[in-house]
Amino acid sequence: MKPINCIIEEVRSETPLIRTYRLDRNLNPAPGQYLMLWIRGVDEIPMSFSGQDTITVQSVGVATQAIFRMGAGSEVGLRGPLGNGFALKGNKILLIGGGVGTAPLAFLAEVAKKADISVTSLLGFRSRDDMIFQDRLEGLGETIITTDDGSYGIKGHASAGLKELNLFDYDQIYLCGPEMMMSDIISRTAEHAAKTQACINRYFKCAAGICGSCCLDPDGVRVCVEGPVLLADRLLDSEFGRYKRGPSGAKGPCRG
């Protein structure tokens, strides 16, 4: 698929480093799917859908800073929706999100609610100023918030909120956030791994399952097409949480 041209209709600031962009068309994505956003003359990068026609971007480097320089009326190219997305299952689900990883979960929560599925959310942020989509999720069900510095909700990492919940109550658990946070949760809740779906990041280049940049050890799962949502079962004995490959293919730490 060639990139299609798209116009940014609206920009919303969520925090100083996170903004939501509404696009001029609805590509009918499933929550957990992503698009490849082409910032012309700069780069093409993966972004999850945070709604039917929105993406939510954290500024971390060259391409995301270039997006931050764009406003309503700016044009971008895009390919998508890509990837598998979350599989919505059961009557009662738990979402565990961290930082900008809350974005695809907020989208999932809205779709779940429409299907009359009961939604509980556990969200972790660095501090009160970094919180996103709290209002969106609080409107949909019980929401527990943790902050690293204790400026809001429970003090500590997202895992500190697990004490408040009985995971056996939930038919399915959905996870998205920084890799160390997700891998911490997955290892603490390993007995629920068969019902935990995690939306993960790897370095994507082709996003078409052909270049090999995103492949996960030890089975060579192509995260760009077989993911980005993978069952925690598949992640437990994988490279996830241990290392990840960068743009050259060399292994590096998976901080963040």
């Binding site: 698929m1 060639k2 082409w38 700069v42 093409e44 270049c211 960068g246 050259s248 293919g249």
Partner: peptide, 25 residues
């Protein structure tokens, strides 16, 4: 690290790529 994206483009008759020889050495 290879070339910046887009690194591939699907065209009607095939595929274009410019990965730029990314490799860890």
């Amino acid at each position: 690290e290879g070339h910046p994206g887009p690194t591939i483009v699907h065209v009607k008759c095939g595929l274009l790529n410019a990965m730029g020889l990314p490799n860890p050495s």
